[in-house]
Computed example of a mutant assay.
Amino acid sequence: MTKQQFLEHLEKGLKSKHVSEVSDIIEDYRVYFDEQLTLGKKEEDIALSLGDLESIMDDYSEYSKGSRKHWFDLVAISFLAIPLLIMNYGVLITFGASSLAFWGGAIYYLFGLDSLAFMPMIPLVPKIGFILVLLSAAMFMFSLSVRFYGILKSMTKQYLVKQAIRIGEFPQKDMYQKIFKYSGLLTVGLAIIGYFLAVIVAKDFQFWHVWEWFE
């Protein structure tokens, strides 16, 4: 098979298989033929050394399909992943803001501040319980933020590097796991104790009415 016959058959076959960038592929083979001809080889021998035309066309066809599938998968995963990541980063900000709010509330009551009209007044004894609840809740939300950040960091890295995303268990430092576990239990326990302290002092199960929180 001559150079011209080889290139014509290859071009026709690639187009029939809907391979992209056919002209560039043909030009590469044309350059290869010219280089080999300058070395004194015959066109028939060069064509024979390149292998079976059908195999060459099949290889390019599979590669082209794989490239199209890759881009389709990338667009599809981006369509789902980007809104999911944005939403979850919003949740992370909410967790962090909640932790700061609990810290702020604890400091407000701890130092006996009364400059904010929307903050309810609490008698001294139950106030101590509420301060402890706020502090433990702040620690819980902080550890939850760290835990959630680790998950989001892993998900973001997967998307940027592998164009994939997975939700599952991710390794956490033992210290943060303990803070998350014990601060959560402590918050629930202190909240129950704080409620009953408030009930005892106010002598009413709906103590917030007695102290006119929502008046």
Rank of each mutant, 00 (worst) to 15 (best):
P83M: 10
K69P: 00
Q206V: 12
M121T: 12
L134Y: 07
Y195L: 05
L110H: 12
K12C: 05
H209G: 12
D114V: 03
A202F: 04
K162C: 02
P83W: 10
A97S: 12
Q172S: 08
D58S: 09
D73A: 06
T38Q: 14
K69Q: 15
H18D: 15
F170H: 10
I179H: 01
L84K: 02
I128Q: 08
F196D: 06
P83C: 10
L190V: 03
Y89S: 04
I193S: 04
I165P: 03
L135H: 02
F214N: 10
V133L: 05
S55D: 15
D73Q: 09
F196I: 04
F130H: 12
M57H: 02
E35Q: 14
L37Q: 08
S136K: 02
S16Y: 11
G168I: 07
M1T: 03
V161W: 10
K12I: 12
L124H: 08
F79I: 13
Y159A: 04
P126Q: 09
A164H: 14
I82W: 09
F196Q: 05
S16M: 13
H209L: 13
Y109H: 09
E215T: 13
D24V: 02
S99K: 01
Y32D: 13
I56D: 07
W208D: 04
L185I: 11
A191F: 10
F205S: 05
F33V: 02
Y195S: 03
P83T: 08
F33S: 00
Q163W: 13
S78H: 06
L197K: 00
M1I: 04
